[in-house]
């Protein structure tokens, strides 16, 4: 089966300890996360800071090693892959980072940056590599002169285009993008989103797209996973989730997202409380401490994912 399948993914981080022997604590970043990214689809991961969305995106590529669960890409078990197999897999799975300032090497020209992945994967002769690097630039909307310049000569939007070119030069099938437009201004953000749209259609790429901005998710993703404190709490087609959210947390997230229309101001922001720390998560449903509809059951038992409509799943005792 092609595409990406993630089943029961779990990742905990241990904080503290070390040779000074301090107190350790366990941050439950991701708990039992399962989802698919079918070929050619764009799947969004959305949630607030500390919900584990970035950890999921990194665990899929084994940039952090998952503790439990399986990740399958085009039928290959990613977690069981040997280093040699992993290198092959990574050629097909590439990453775009959030911050275009810190993710480019300031001492390398754009040509060196774009050639590096081809060299690592021992692809083509020097002449072929040069050809491929030169061919990728117009695709991301950069002029050929850009090749022999350094990152500091480019604006944020242009640097993000370079980051995208670096991911695409290996002709991947899956691109994992962690907040690729969050650091950009609105007008530039729209340029990059449109570029990603075009590339997705032209190259039939699949995307795992991490964002905290529901507007960006709505624009770019067919399917959305909503996360809260390491748990997947709602899953389904993006428009259905945003127009008719089922989980109380998704409702809160949707209502709190500002809309550029003064006639639909957020009516009830009286909702108090903040996200608990993932180092000390609540028992039962992780959202029960802030949920207006919590019942005693919610404090005890973590709800399972249930199908409430075709293709829509939610983890909540109300359903």
């Amino acid at each position: 089966m092609n595409g990406l399948q993630v089943r029961g993914l779990k990742k905990h981080f241990i904080l503290g300890g070390g040779f000074l022997g301090g107190k350790t604590s366990r941050v439950r970043a991701v708990e039992n996360m399962s989802f698919d990214v079918p070929e050619g689809a764009s799947v969004g991961l959305v949630g607030e800071s500390g919900c584990g969305k970035s950890t999921v995106s990194r665990a899929v590529l084994r940039l952090v090693e998952p503790d439990e669960g399986t990740v399958t890409f085009n039928g290959t078990d990613v977690r069981a892959a040997s280093p040699a197999q992993m290198r092959k897999l990574r050629q097909k799975m590439q990453f775009i980072f959030q911050d275009p300032y810190s993710s480019l090497n300031t001492r390398r020209t754009i040509r060196q940056t774009l050639e590096e992945p081809l060299k690592v994967h021992r692809m083509g002769s020097p002449a072929e590599r040069r050809e491929r690097v030169e061919a990728i630039l117009p695709e991301v909307g950069l002029p050929q002169e850009a090749l022999d310049r350094y990152p500091h000569e480019f604006s944020g939007g242009q640097r993000q285009r370079i980051g995208i070119a670096r991911a695409l030069v290996l002709e991947p099938e899956l691109v994992v993008a962690d907040e690729p437009v969050s650091a950009l201004d609105v007008s530039v953000q729209a340029q990059i989103l449109r570029l990603l749209d075009d590339l997705r259609q032209r190259r039939t790429l699949s995307f795992l797209f991490v964002s905290h901005d529901l507007g960006v998710i709505r624009h770019f993703c067919d399917v959305t996973c909503v996360m809260y404190l390491g748990h997947l709490i709602e899953y389904g087609p993006t428009e259905e989730i945003l127009d008719d959210p089922a989980h109380p947390y998704t409702m809160l997230l949707r209502e709190s997202s500002p809309v550029p229309d003064p006639t639909s101001r957020i009516a009830n922001a009286k909702m108090t409380g903040e996200i608990p720390s993932p180092a000390n998560p609540p028992t039962g449903c992780p959202f029960h401490t802030r949920c207006p509809r919590a019942t005693p059951e919610c404090k005890e038992v973590m709800p399972k994912m249930k199908e409430i409509a075709p293709g829509r799943q939610v983890a909540c005792h109300l359903y």
Binding site: A190, Q191, L193, H219, D261
Partner: peptide, 24 residues
Amino acid sequence: EALLKAMPRVDRKAESLEPIPGSV
């Protein structure tokens, strides 16, 4: 006007965003 059209909105479907070409 262009800023409003470049902003992805959570409350309605926009078929395509209209980016502002160039930069500040």
